[in-house]
Design a protein around this nucleic acid. Sequence first.
DNA 1: TCAAAAGTGTTCTCGTTACACCCATGT
DNA 2: ACATGGGTGTAACGAGAACACTTTTGA
Lengths: 217, 217
Amino acid sequence: MENKMMIETVLNLFTIENGIIKILLVHRESDPYKTYWELPALTLNSDENLEECTNTLVTNIISNKKIYVEQGDVFSNINRKIDERVIGVSYLGMVDQMSLEFSELSKDKEYLWFDVTALPKLAFDCKEIIDNSLSKLNSKLKNIKYLKLFFPSDFTIPEMQHIYEFLFNQKIDRRNFRKKFINSNILKETGDYIKGATGRPAKLYKFNEDVIEKNIF
Amino acid sequence: MENKMMIETVLNLFTIENGIIKILLVHRESDPYKTYWELPALTLNSDENLEECTNTLVTNIISNKKIYVEQGDVFSNINRKIDERVIGVSYLGMVDQMSLEFSELSKDKEYLWFDVTALPKLAFDCKEIIDNSLSKLNSKLKNIKYLKLFFPSDFTIPEMQHIYEFLFNQKIDRRNFRKKFINSNILKETGDYIKGATGRPAKLYKFNEDVIEKNIF
DNA sequence: TCAAAAGTGTTCTCGTTACACCCATGT
DNA sequence: ACATGGGTGTAACGAGAACACTTTTGA
């Protein structure tokens, strides 16, 4: 039985709040890496596949009926968990802020959203896994299908622009961004305006129902 | 030890011959699926990571010093191997026809290249894995970096065009294809012409040394 | 001399970029 | 009234699409 080993799903759950990409981390309360932060993970059981396992992991944390999850890469270095051999399969999840709700079970541990540009001390190989999933997320976000997951309704165009400026790491001309975004025929005005911010209030939009896969940028 | 299980790397080794994408399969000589074809696979040992395991698998088959390999998806359905639980991690490999050489070890089994549009009877979940890796390959091939792996030297532009016509499943205008390909500044004429074919002989090209990552199409 | 495939240029269209001024709100 | 950020139009440019005839070889 030398060649049997443990496998875990490792969840990279992303959300976007005020144009900032955030990832969910959990606080470690025991050694090794006590007080460090890590990605939520769950060991695969023999009576389930990885998708089922990931689904359990997600619903243990948040109570949303259905969130979008997609497989990432596998991390199999011998010492990635220090004292035990565990193969980690990375999963990328995407939730919107509006419908997000933590479950009862999640109260046992301390969960927190972190700005991906300002991460805390990370346990094990979590830094490597996050870097990897972030770069996957970046390319996915060019597609409306994924963008929609984060914005079910009521976003502003400047908010979108901030996200793309972060993704490409460069300023974008406001007029050109607007034109491209609106001309894509993927948006509907809601008729409302955002409030509470300084300056002229921005129009609120939502995505058309029927738009599925389409690359913008 | 309920939750420990076997893991294997599953190799999707691709090559391109005469503008046709081919994958390497091995003939099964025992039940289940006796006489069916399958993807080469190797069980992960406790003293190695998946990359090392895949590397062993590759060198058991072909004797090329270094071929390019990249991780694909994980297949974890409970019954994918019928009578035992094995998690399969798919790897994509790319070799060119010119430098390809089978190793001594490979003589034990029957290996064959199959046109991906004309696959034989496949064992286990190999069909699913191949479909998956093919779709990954398709999007990768738009990038010169990957295309170069298949064509170290001496290819013709019509040959490339056939590949893209297959990838996009549509005819491309010869003049426009040529223009785009040549204007990309990624090619050098070798000065030779292909021979033995019917019609006017096509010029042979190779890629510039320095071109690394660039999307064409 | 015929069949088969390769090579070649121009025009039109449409998306991308560059760029400067006015508008609505809170303080 | 002023500071802050949002909203708008136009002209120049460049990449992509459409399109037909000539050239080189083998049979």
